[in-house]
């Protein structure tokens, strides 16, 4: 059971990462890169690393996306 979950998570992460890179709108691209972080949280939990999963959940889904979105706002605001 664990093998098919790992395989599926890796395929999902790679698809979301590729979509995040080729996406034209930058805000959508940042939200898709949050999806990569979320998928890696699932994988860290399956790999029996709850400490790393907790850190990645807070950083990847919370603070990193806010930093990217704020930078995007600053770049768009003074155009």
């Amino acid at each position: 059971m664990i093998g098919i979950v790992i395989l599926g998570s890796f395929i999902a992460i790679i698809i979301v990462a590729f979509a995040s890179i080729v996406e034209k709108r930058l805000a959508d691209s940042i939200v898709l890169s949050m999806g990569v972080g979320l998928g890696s949280v699932v994988l860290f939990f399956i790999f029996q690393a709850p400490d790393v999963a907790l850190t990645e959940a807070v950083i990847g889904a919370g603070i990193s996306s806010v930093i990217f979105l704020m930078a995007l706002k600053h770049l768009k605001a003074s155009r």
């Binding site: 992460i13 995040s20 890179i21 930058l26 890169s33 990569v36 990193s64």
Partner: peptide, 18 residues
């Protein structure tokens, strides 16, 4: 675009962590 470059580097970083 510079933000796309940073997103790409963060994806590479996550692959190393995994």
């Amino acid at each position: 675009h510079i933000i796309k470059i940073f997103i790409s580097i963060s994806i590479m970083e996550i692959s190393i962590f995994l």
